[in-house]
Amino acid sequence: MDSDATTDTRPTPRPGGRSARVQRAVHDAVNALLGEIDRAQITVPAIAARAGVTPSTIYRRWGDLGELLADVAVERLRPDTPPEDTGSAQRDVLLYVTQFADEMASGPGRTVLRDVIGSTAENRSGTCCNVTRNQLELLGERAAARGEDFPGVEYLIDTVIAPIIFRILSNEPPGEARVAALVAHAFGTMPDPSRAAPALSAPSS
């Protein structure tokens, strides 16, 4: 054995052990405070006091308040239940995407998007995207089991999810009709929804 080699004797966090309990306590504290006070008033010491940990514990694990809020935001995106099964691939996707658009366009949803996009952690946005990707993959598996055609998951992200997020971030959340048009276009049942949308008239001078 190399005499210069060292052995890392630090304990590895156990799933469900203290590390998981600390994360849950801190996440619960953040969510509780978000429901009680304005987001701008939330501080690391306030979170630490509510969670029963020291501020240094939070700084060691998350780095700063922004990263903690982004971590909580990603966790809030994780669905509690699988997408509803309507018996039709296109209806499944339409229902899921409509609910997704409504949630993301809400006040809390926009806060989630802002926190995730503002995060400096390289994997934060990727994790957010993977939550949606996993849900669409489940819908694709259902469609395959029923023998239905299904657009590629990445195609749905590019042509349905991405335009919805762009409009929400541009403060022009899509209505149900546009969401339905995007989904229908992805399934090849109607023309490009950008052409189907009514033209905006030029403002009068």
Rank of each mutant, 00 (worst) to 15 (best):
S3I: 12
D4T: 15
A5W: 13
T6N: 06
T7H: 08
D8G: 13
T9G: 02
P13I: 08
P13L: 11
P13E: 03
R14H: 02
R14A: 07
R14T: 03
P15G: 01
P15Y: 06
G17V: 03
G17W: 11
S19N: 11
S19C: 05
A20G: 10
V22H: 09
Q23E: 15
Q23S: 15
A25Q: 05
D28R: 14
A29R: 04
A29P: 06
V30M: 09
L34I: 02
G35S: 04
E36H: 09
I37Q: 13
D38L: 10
D38W: 11
D38F: 07
R39G: 00
V44K: 08
V44F: 11
P45Y: 05
I47L: 01
I47P: 03
I47F: 08
A48R: 00
A49T: 10
A51N: 12
W62I: 03
G66K: 07
E67T: 10
E67C: 01
A70T: 05
D71H: 14
V72R: 06
V74K: 12
V74E: 11
V74S: 06
R76M: 11
P79W: 07
D80K: 12
T81Q: 14
E84T: 15
E84R: 15
G87Q: 06
A89E: 09
A89C: 07
D92K: 11
L94S: 11
L94N: 00
L94Y: 02
Q99L: 15
A101Y: 02
A101R: 04
D102M: 04
D102R: 10
E103G: 01
G107K: 05
P108D: 04
T111G: 10
T111Y: 05
R114C: 03
D115A: 13
D115G: 00
V116D: 06
V116C: 03
I117S: 09
S119K: 08
S119Q: 05
T120F: 06
A121C: 04
E122Y: 12
N123W: 14
G126F: 13
T127N: 13
C128E: 13
C129H: 10
L136T: 02
L138R: 08
L139W: 02
L139G: 00
G140W: 09
E141S: 07
A144S: 06
A145G: 06
G147F: 09
F150V: 10
V153L: 07
L156V: 08
I157L: 15
D158S: 09
A162H: 06
I164K: 00
I164W: 00
I164M: 00
R167E: 05
R167Y: 10
E172N: 04
P174D: 04
G175L: 00
G175S: 02
A177S: 09
A177P: 02
A177M: 08
V179F: 03
A180S: 10
A180H: 02
A184Y: 08
A184H: 13
A184T: 10
F187L: 10
M190V: 04
M190L: 14
P191T: 03
D192Y: 10
D192F: 05
P193E: 00
S194G: 02
R195M: 08
A197N: 04
P198Q: 04
P198F: 03
P198H: 02
A199E: 07
L200N: 06
S201F: 04
A202L: 12
P203W: 07
S205T: 14
